[in-house]
Design a protein around this nucleic acid. Sequence first.
DNA 1: ATCATAATGAGGCACGTGCCTCAAAACAAG
DNA 2: CTTGTTTTGAGGCACGTGCCTCATTATGAT
Lengths: 346, 346
Amino acid sequence: MALQKITLKPTTKDLAKAAGVSRATVDRVLNGRDGVRQKTVDRVQEAIKKLGFVRNLQAANLAKSQSYHFVFALPRSGDQFLERIVQHIDEAMEIFSTDHISCDVRHIDENDPHSISDFLDSLSPHEVNGVAIMSPETPQVRDAISRLQDRGVAALPFVSNQTMMDSDWVGINNRAAGATAALLLGQFIGRQEGSVMVIAESMQSRDSLERRLGFDEEINTAFKQLRVLPSLETYGNDARAGEIITASLASNSDLVGIYVMASEARKPLTILQGLNINPSIIKIAHELTTYTEQALRAHTLDGVIAQDAGHLVRSAIRRLKGNVDQRRTIGSQENIRIYILLRTNI
Amino acid sequence: MALQKITLKPTTKDLAKAAGVSRATVDRVLNGRDGVRQKTVDRVQEAIKKLGFVRNLQAANLAKSQSYHFVFALPRSGDQFLERIVQHIDEAMEIFSTDHISCDVRHIDENDPHSISDFLDSLSPHEVNGVAIMSPETPQVRDAISRLQDRGVAALPFVSNQTMMDSDWVGINNRAAGATAALLLGQFIGRQEGSVMVIAESMQSRDSLERRLGFDEEINTAFKQLRVLPSLETYGNDARAGEIITASLASNSDLVGIYVMASEARKPLTILQGLNINPSIIKIAHELTTYTEQALRAHTLDGVIAQDAGHLVRSAIRRLKGNVDQRRTIGSQENIRIYILLRTNI
DNA sequence: ATCATAATGAGGCACGTGCCTCAAAACAAG
DNA sequence: CTTGTTTTGAGGCACGTGCCTCATTATGAT
């Protein structure tokens, strides 16, 4: 018992004693209040190091009645991947409710940077501690994020990358994801020669460009017998998608593989399904959704490159919280992996 | 401000008021102390439900000076997978230190159930709140786990399954893992006919049996042109491994694939490397280790079926903590996924 | 109705930190 | 040395819960 007492974590009281100051001064130093001589600050810092003091966050939050409120700013869309994200936000809220974390999903118009900027500007640090933002990169959004951070609201690019914050975002390495799709597709196709179709929603976004880059790189080095066709852009338009896919099929009779790069694979895959293409053509898509899951099971889709929606959400929350707590939150836990899903390991 | 106050979480004080009892009685009910009439208990329970009260765990732990100490009981072995587990335990301790969780790694002799049982019996609930146990299943261990739980120490089978606690353990579905290995191997091999070698450390363990079961199932239904050979058991003995692998190679000239089922793939793969086998033979192994990572990169290994060591560790800790806190901790977060790793998504 | 017993209430201290006030001490400038 | 300013200390209350004691009230059996 006496032994245990020794191993207990030091408190601010211990700190005060060790530094030869009062608890009030320790508090001033710990919370960066001014009116403390540099000499005294140093003494306290020294004691912190010596004792290995770490502030008891739970006690501090209790004293401050601190609670965390985060906003997920997501595109408004019927996308199944987004649906899954939202589901996982709900689940995460339950998990994190014991930490007094709550979240809010707000839908933004991803094609209207002005309205996104307005929305971000409307967030007050008194109501919102942090925002996870899934939005394509534009100057307006970038500036709004800067203003947000200046106001003391943490901002975290979510799934969609923003160049400005290269190191601090939540999502996969899209170049590696593209390469993985290529490697899987190439291996599944085997020694056969032929061309590969790439279907994207748009090649405007950074994500698409990076995936395509990684895809081409891998195919061109490891599968020289394959010919990658130019990306077909659907622009989220079904009619257009049907036309360009049909046209491409007609002019490429040697098709051996299809890579659906968009995060909403349902539309392109449905169209392909309707066109009754050769089932031996290997098909790889992105993201696990109700549709892709079922397609995998039905053998109409051969593989899925995915990021774990739940992990994305929880990682974002942990990082936003870490930001509020002024902690560094790096660590392998926040590394979002590139999942390969086959019908056996969904 | 006044509005905010309303949305604040209810406290035991609020509960007392709502139930028309004192805080002392609320405390008696919440902490299961006796000497409270059923009628009163019901009234309090009702108020809990009505107000949606949830105990503030941080405050409670502060009051109790609660801290958590967990033990990881792992086999003593030079296994690279185990090394990685230990690394992740260290990392996890840092992450969870703010929650006042500490861990201890203790090595057990996996082939000596008696010593394992003795070790488990030696753990006192005053020093250890929970144990994650990685050990093959034996009656002695099973009984020791039961005694442990009776004494109030949480026990959690870790990576190695124990039949007794089918629902409550940390690890992957080994049958699905075997099936995934089969599917990947089959697809990579393509239309080619031939035989497939399976290398295990031992077929005594439940994990191995399940992997083999899943593997055979998938090969026999989806890849009928492949012939799966009987499992080669190395018993962790290098000389023996060299002999049986060489012998099997000699008598199966139509080999097209190799499945290394053991979690330590280094030895078998090194041996195969030394035998200069045809590089077009597809090789799949388990677990990401320094060796398998390098082998993937060097194209001497085609795929790895893995479980995320960090995730395993963190999940175990969360579940042990949940047990101490008397919470249910299910949720998609604790589902350990089967990773497929290629050289592009390590 | 009486008494023993069971059930409940009132109140207080503790946990570690944040935040406040007021007084005391240390310091710098004249 | 005096004055004004800066720095520090002492102390206390708060956060929400656990846990304790002691007094009081309700209950059931006789």
